[in-house]
Design a protein around this nucleic acid. Structure first.
Lengths: 161, 161
DNA sequence: TATTGTTATACTCTATAACTATA
DNA sequence: TATAGTTATAGAGTATAACAATA
């Protein structure tokens, strides 16, 4: 019955998962290498770019909200913002509603830099994805949505062993 | 004719690519966070693990061959190997055929550590992939093989803009 | 001269701990 | 007391440059 199918499915997907992990690692390092010239041209690092991207994406970005969405610590984001601030790409100002909090916004220059780098990233991946069937790309997006969801929360209460 | 279809396909996949990039980033950071306890338990870092994994995978691993396969510099690998060597997980010895070259091999302990961590990674991903249709996983592996291939070599001669 | 490995150095990313200001 | 942001510090990962030994 179903158990046989399950067992076969798991044995197969184990090798598939192993290959996926290696490819994921390979794609990440290759992307970073390919993106380096564009980042260097904008005098920005990858960490700074992700902070910039989140300030751009979030409704009302604060240090802690950016940190939360990126899954990094507040001091890390704070450091990235120091550099973005110094480069004139992001502005900080204290909130009037809660004076502990800092409201982040992009400068026009920050907006341009974010758009250019995001365009480079998308172009790079789109170029590498040339020739891949759209249905495969759609499946991949579905898989990654699910993987991210499944990896986010440590399944605390549920003993996996 | 085909141009219309192409244009539509590109506009659509542009958003798809953007989401894929964000999910990729999210999955990477989530995996690293989830893997931290296992790495800490083995007193090993992610960089050391990938070096260990390549010494394990390559036919006859040398510093330069590991560096090439990981896409990192020789000094980086050399440093990782220093630590793996000090932890008794990897052994180095000069090649007799070419005395410049160093032949790398896993110790029994290194083999065990590699297997345990690789198992953790695979288990983590397999758990997160529970419920994903096998056909979607297969498509994803195809996509990542192609993406890695497409990202590897800078398309030097071909002006992409 | 070219290649393999190593050391020296520097910079980024990351985290934890401690501190300040505010709530 | 708790929270937002920051500063201080330290460890890991990365790279380039300079060097040693060998080819």
């Amino acid at each position: 019955m179903a158990a046989t199918v399950m067992a076969r499915g798991r044995a197969e997907s184990s090798e598939e998962v192993a290959e996926l992990v290696e490819r994921l690692h390979g794609v990440m390092r290759a992307s970073l290498h390919r993106l380096q010239p564009a980042l260097a041209a904008e005098k920005i690092t990858m960490g700074q770019f992700w902070a910039l991207h989140l300030v751009s994406s979030l409704e009302s970005a604060s240090v802690s909200s950016v940190a939360r969405h990126l899954g990094v610590s507040a001091p890390t984001v704070c450091g990235n913002l120091d550099q973005l601030d110094a480069s004139g790409l992001v502005r900080r100002h204290r909130s009037d509603r809660d004076r502990r909090s800092v409201v982040l916004s992009l400068t026009p220059s920050g907006r341009q830099v974010e758009a250019r780098i995001w365009g480079q990233i998308a172009g790079l991946v789109a170029e590498a994805a040339r020739g891949i069937p759209p249905s495969d790309l759609e499946a991949t997006v579905r898989v990654f949505r699910e993987l991210e969801r499944g990896l986010e929360a440590p399944p605390a209460g549920r003993g996996a062993r």
